[in-house]
């Protein structure tokens, strides 16, 4: 089976994000970049599916030259080849999904696995847009019943269950108040939640091999997608800071403060 996975370049989740004084964006200086953690979970799931069912994992990223670093990361984890849609400048979710649609139509995968959201703009939209654009089945927030410390996880068993006929996939979804299970006809779009799996490390030989794996370059023009943004970010600001708190010596003081100062109980 062929699986298309995404590898968006985002700020390291551990880094401190600061807004520029003029509100035009965030301060880029000193930031580190990584593959979107949810996408990394998608790459891992793709690799597990390919290991179990055979086939190929193709990773795609959209952005300037620098996104090759994230593609190489996915290739080092074990993805077979990469597609790079070369574009600098802002892209909104409509544009991203439009580009991915064209890549998917070209690659004809059995499944596209994306992170449920990227940790920079936190929109949580692209997978759903893509499924609609392609007219495919969609299962967002894929998770699993077993914990991340289970035997299944240690043995790298894929959580997405492909039917015996290879025509469907069962997905356990993390939703409000429980887990919902869907059966999607393939091809399908799946977006990953946090506890689908623990992504593997890129091994040293994997990183060395990734250097010579192919990266195909495409552009929005070649794909015929109009990427004019339909979402304009007018201004960014920092959330109002919390006023400094205090340490209380004991429970009695805490209860008193909560009742009389914060009026929270």
């Amino acid at each position: 089976m062929k699986i298309l996975v995404t590898a968006k370049r985002v700020e390291d989740p551990e880094s401190k994000i600061k807004v520029k004084p003029d509100g035009s964006g965030i301060v880029q200086e000193g930031l580190k970049y990584k593959i979107n953690p949810f996408d990394e979970i998608g790459v891992e799931e793709g690799l597990r599916l390919a290991a179990k069912h055979g086939g190929e994992v193709v990773v795609v990223s959209i952005g300037g030259k620098e996104v090759q670093e994230q593609l190489r990361h996915a290739l080092a984890m074990g993805a077979h080849r990469a597609v790079w849609v070369n574009h600098t400048g802002t892209l909104d979710q409509l544009a991203l999904a439009g580009l991915l649609q064209k890549v998917a139509e070209k690659e004809k995968p059995d499944m596209v696995i994306l992170g449920k959201q990227s940790i920079d703009d936190d929109q949580n939209q692209v997978g759903q847009y893509l499924a609609e654009f392609l007219g495919w089945s969609q299962a967002t927030f894929a998770s699993k019943v077993e914990s991340l410390e289970s035997e299944q996880e240690k043995n790298k068993v894929p959580a997405l269950q492909v039917g015996a006929d290879g025509k469907t996939v069962r997905v356990v979804r993390e939703v409000d108040n429980g887990l919902a299970t869907l059966e999607c006809a393939l091809p399908a779009v799946v977006t990953t939640d946090l506890r689908l799996n623990l992504p593997r490390y890129a091994s040293l030989p994997g990183i060395m091999k990734a250097k010579s794996k192919p990266i195909e370059e495409l552009t929005p023009e070649k794909l015929g997608v109009d990427v004019t943004p339909k979402i304009q970010v007018l201004k960014m600001s920092s959330p109002p800071p919390r006023k400094a708190g205090i340490k209380v010596p004991d429970v009695a003081t805490l209860v008193d403060k909560l009742r009389n100062e914060a009026k929270a109980v």
Binding site: E11, P13, I17, I26, I119, D121, D122, V233, M236, P239
Partner: peptide, 9 residues
Amino acid sequence: MWAGNVFAE
């Protein structure tokens, strides 16, 4: 955005 570290208009 960025997990609530930024508010965007």
